[in-house]
């Protein structure tokens, strides 16, 4: 098992803020919009250095999405930011018509996705956004795993022409991605090569998958661990290449089972190479108030859950 180390734990939203700060300096077309959540989105540096390129929209997310779509006409690259719930489910029709169907170069960048938003509870813990966004034709959906990867993804999407949904979160998590690792949209990253089971993880669950890999080694199981930071377009080639080798898979994500990464992987497998699959995800339930760690434990989004599913799926191999 390959060893991954980190010097500090950092929040992915700060990776977004750092990416925006860099974009502000190097790309004069980048414009930031926010719906009254500047500090939560870590936009302080961008705003301080580029006040004329920041558009405060107030608590009016639907208008923010429309304004972003209109801004693209003059060649500007709008980054529309808010909490994941308010940047997806609240404004789904606006994203569908003004951004996706109209093919506008809008970057919807959202923080506080999933259970790890914590104490605010289920009203704010969106667990359906990946499903909603990946259903839209032409929409790119990205869910990076740590600070460095979120920063790199933020910078990369500015150079990509087309609508993007970039999802990140609030808690601090191990920052293990090399700072100089370039971000390639749609290109999965093999973190550990293995032969017994494929673990496809996204977002905060990537580190949990690495922890699970170590626990599996203790049981003599050699897991292949792959970071699927881009859910759409999905790296089908990497998924199939791994499954040809291992013959079974576990997916892990901070999202509903319905519509999430697991669904996408299941589609690839059943259409190309049917193989046993288990999913670590929230099972048709809303979240609740609690600390991020308590919630991840209660809803089974942990390394231990990944281990249990891996052992189960290996049993299902013929």
């Amino acid at each position: 098992m390959r060893t991954y180390t980190f010097t500090e734990k950092k929040d992915t939203r700060s990776g977004f803020g750092a990416g925006m700060a860099e974009l502000g300096r190097k790309n004069p077309d980048v414009v930031a919009l926010c719906a009254d959540l500047v500090a939560s989105l870590k936009l302080d540096t961008f705003i301080k250095e580029n006040p004329e390129r920041f558009i405060q929209c107030g608590i009016a997310e639907a208008n923010m999405i429309g304004v972003a779509a209109g801004l693209t006409l003059s060649g500007l690259i709008p980054f529309a930011t808010t909490f994941a719930n308010f940047g997806s489910s609240r404004v789904y029709d606006q994203i569908r018509q003004a951004v996706a169907y109209s093919n506008k170069n809008v970057k919807i960048c959202v923080s506080h996705a999933g259970l790890t938003l914590g104490e605010d509870g289920a009203t704010h813990q969106v667990l359906e956004d990946i499903g909603m966004m990946k259903s839209l034709p032409g929409m790119t959906v990205i869910n990076p795993c740590d600070f460095n990867q979120t920063k790199a993804a933020t910078i990369a999407i500015a150079d990509y022409e087309g609508p993007v949904y970039l999802r990140f979160g609030r808690p601090v998590v191990p920052n293990f991605t090399p700072a100089d690792q370039p971000f390639e949209i749609g290109k999965a990253i093999v973190l550990n090569e293995g032969a017994d089971v494929s673990i496809f993880a996204t977002g905060h669950l990537v580190w949990q998958a690495l922890e699970a890999g170590k626990l599996l080694v203790e049981q003599g199981i050699d897991a292949e661990i792959i970071n699927i930071h881009t859910i759409k377009p999905l790296d089908k080639e990497a998924i199939l290449k791994s499954i040809y080798k291992t013959g079974c898979a576990v997916t892990a994500e901070e999202h509903q089972m319905n519509g999430g990464l697991g669904d996408s992987v299941a589609q690839v497998l059943s259409l190309n190479h049917p193989a046993p699959l288990e999913m670590v995800a929230v099972n048709d339930s809303f979240g609740e108030s609690g600390t991020p760690d308590q919630l991840m434990e209660k809803y089974g989004l942990t390394a231990a859950s990944i281990v249990a599913k891996a052992l189960a799926v290996i049993q299902r191999k013929k």
């Binding site: 208008n63 304004v67 779509a69 801004l71 018509q97 003004a98």
Partner: peptide, 22 residues
């Protein structure tokens, strides 16, 4: 831009007007 689902055009126009200002 597409329109049909109502209430969205004024926001898009606002973005276009903002773009012209910038």
């Amino acid at each position: 831009i597409a329109s049909g689902s109502l209430g969205q055009g004024l926001s898009a126009a606002a973005g276009a007007a903002y773009g012209k200002k910038l």
